[in-house]
Design a protein around this nucleic acid. Structure first.
Lengths: 202, 202, 202, 202
DNA sequence: AATGAATGAGTTTTCATTCAT
DNA sequence: CATGAATGAAAACTCATTCAT
């Protein structure tokens, strides 16, 4: 019996529990510290103690949200790389497309995950950062392999890798699903730009 | 009498009034809503009423900070473009270098300016966003002109322009002054990457 | 058919229903107001609604506990006096020994009963206080009778009676079953002290 | 220059700061956990944040109160013993009279100090208990010395010493300043009873 | 009796802000 | 400018209690 491969390109509407969905909305709009537990509860359609029945503290809500989001992204990326096979170029494209789509269809998730890292207390922060670094490592490997093997022309694989990441992340700051570009076009164009980054020479 | 041209490459240590410097530090670490006026006052070495002597409210401190930062960046960029002259390629390079340096030497300023936009009340937000858009417009023009005139090969000038911006902004998320790369090297490498973005074709 | 005489010297381990035993423990440690119904339930090995199945409210648990404790003490004292017969000296000794043993083996019961009187609402308090006064009255009579009849030398029977009571109560503040003195020794010593109180003259 | 000797017999009306006076009243009536900070503030004639301006937490109010009370009692007792000189009998009488007066004129202080020990968190409790033990130690020494030197007849100096203490403490449970006995009479009578305790033999 | 979900009213504490000195 | 005292409003969180299953 074979495990179902994850459909990493598919984004449905609500994949988050009600409370986390409310937290996502609120944290994106006003930030963690700018959001009150009352606001959270009423957005989730609960009373305040009702909310505390599900999560023991505001901080735990933030942790659950960020962990959910990061786990989803890591799993999608792993599936994309799996599908891509061993070639650095294919892996590069898969990684970029995966992160692009995530930042197109999970704009708020991505924003909150990066903007509220600082609001994590204790070692919660470290766990989330480790997941982020793991993700970045996947791209780094592909770029370094590709640069070493001649697939990519860049003389600065490390800087290029980071540049590609921020390129993908950046779309979340302006992409709107009702914009003029279709998702497929947008992915295509940014793949071109990203390949430009890892192939740029002096 | 001629106006002194602004030295847009030069970044001194403290160009901000004491209170705003404290606000910068605190807002970067805990966010606007996560920072109390008492914390602000004590970081600034003032008493609470002393702080209110300088600014009428917490919100006004945020506004003053973001305006200061944005005005500085706009002026530097204007100076850089002035110095670059009319050629799209030179203007592109100047803009990129200017934004890069800003995000290297004013990391916290940049981070707070973008992360706390949402904490601005009333029309304060609009004023700051307008400045940001004005800045982006300067690059858009250069890229569009360069694309139209054949200087840049990109078929997607708008997307490329945005990509270049996030490329510059992105360095602030990892650049450290004590890192292995000299500022000059880092600027150089990212200019290469940025040119890769506006020259990428299918 | 004759009623079984109560063995007023015998103290078994658990004579309280599970919930009251838990309440005793918790009220002794944190007080009535410092104890939550959740804590009570979990100490009793019940769910919260399970606890409410047994008692209609937190206040009712306190009432049931204090009534149980006071009823037990009154019955033991009555049995002791019964056994002692009519002589004031014997009645005095019986009363003292009975209250002493109670405060040695029911330390927590005694402490909670006096410390949480104030937490009783409505006329619950009056009922418990009446029982306490009834108890004190039994000793008062013995001392007054003994003083009048020359058995006790004290010129201040009322004050002496009260003094004897607090002497007995006082052992609960430091007696530990694993201490160096056997219960019998301790009873003996305090009987000596108590007799000292009712025989002291100027 | 000679230090003013403390008038350990003199009890004025209000020797406590306003907030602690309010806390005393409230803790005596409803206990620490049964008293809300709102109640405390309004009894003290302050707003809630006004109260927090003076004390950083509810717990700190309790600590300040108990420390104030215990320090006062320890100082009075030390002064009484000082005045009494070296004779065990005189020291015994002084100690007893001092503790008696304290429990007559500081009834609530004494009650709260013993009933709310359990509400002290961390090592606050230990500090207060140490003061209490220090006090008890002063009497223990006098009784042991007196028993060794033949001043007191008791064969159980330790138990007697404890008995005397609870005798003094006990008056606080029923003494009322408007009662039938004058303070001087009451002190006199209880000195007689206390001497009875340390002179009782089999 | 347990479980799980829920709640109005309360808790302690902190907030931004003010004002007299 | 600092100090110290003050406050209405709101923060996060907990309370005793209920009810459907």
């Amino acid at each position: 019996m074979v495990a179902e491969p994850l459909e990493w390109r598919k984004y449905d509407d609500a994949e988050l529990p009600r409370v986390l969905e409310a937290a996502l909305e609120a944290f994106a709009k006003h930030g963690y510290h700018g959001t009150s537990i009352r606001e959270l509860a009423s957005t989730a359609g609960l009373s305040v103690p009702g909310l505390y029945h599900h999560y023991p503290s505001k901080q735990d809500i933030l942790v659950a949200l960020l962990e959910d989001v990061m786990r989803d992204l890591v799993q999608r990326t792993a599936a994309a790389l799996e599908e891509a096979g061993p070639s650095p170029a294919a892996r590069f494209d898969a990684w970029v497309e995966c992160l692009l789509r995530f930042h197109m269809f999970r704009t708020k998730h991505a924003f909150v995950t990066s903007s509220e890292l600082r609001s994590l207390e204790g070692d919660n922060r470290d766990r989330i950062v480790a997941l982020r670094d793991e993700l970045q490592g996947m791209l780094d490997h592909a770029v370094e392999d590709g640069a070493a093997g001649g697939t990519f022309a860049t003389p600065y694989p490390k800087a290029a890798s980071r540049g590609v990441t921020v390129l993908c992340i950046g779309v979340s700051s302006w992409y709107r699903p009702d914009g003029p570009l279709s998702p497929e076009d947008l992915v295509h164009r940014h793949l071109v730009l990203a390949r430009g980054v890892v192939n740029a020479t002096e």
